[in-house]
């Protein structure tokens, strides 16, 4: 029990990821979030956090030192994008080249809504038709 306490205590004291030591818990969290946001340039479908490629190690170091320099999240994103292009961002920016990417889901949603509303209207129309038929039958007395 005491051992567990000591171990957990030392862990919370160092606040380090992978050899990087942070002064504040908030910085460590920022670091963890940022390295998950960038794609490892060499390995296509892994982020910086999950890659052991030399370039990913270097970029983690870069992100760490940029945080130490007091750079904002956006400044760090811009720094990496200037050097590695949009490729490095897992969440693409809204540019003339990516409008289709961002716009398609919205357009599809609108189309689906329009389509569903069309079906509902048609169903209502049919129900009305049947009601009318019923009334016609009742009034006319023919079954």
């Amino acid at each position: 029990m005491l051992l567990i306490f000591i171990v957990s205590f030392t862990f919370s004291m160092t606040q380090s990821i992978d050899g990087f030591v942070f002064e504040h818990e908030s910085e460590r969290k920022r670091f963890g979030r940022l390295i998950e946001e960038f794609r490892c340039p060499q390995c296509v479908n892994t982020n910086l956090a999950g890659s052991d490629a030399p370039i990913a190690q270097d970029l983690r170091k870069t992100v760490f030192s940029l945080i130490q320099d007091g750079k904002s999240d956006q400044e760090i994103r811009d720094y990496l994008r200037e050097r590695y292009g949009d490729f490095i961002l897992f969440k693409p920016r809204f540019t003339p080249g990516t409008w289709a990417l961002w716009g398609t889901p919205i357009v599809l949603l609108l189309l689906a809504t329009w389509f569903l509303m069309g079906i509902r209207e048609k169903r209502n129309a049919i129900t009305l038709d049947l009601n009318d038929m019923q009334r016609v039958k009742e009034i006319s007395g023919i079954h």
Partner: peptide, 13 residues
């Protein structure tokens, strides 16, 4: 040796 110039150059590897 530390890969710092290469990060500035946008080197993949």
């Amino acid at each position: 040796a530390k890969g710092e110039i290469c990060v500035d150059l946008g080197v993949y590897g």
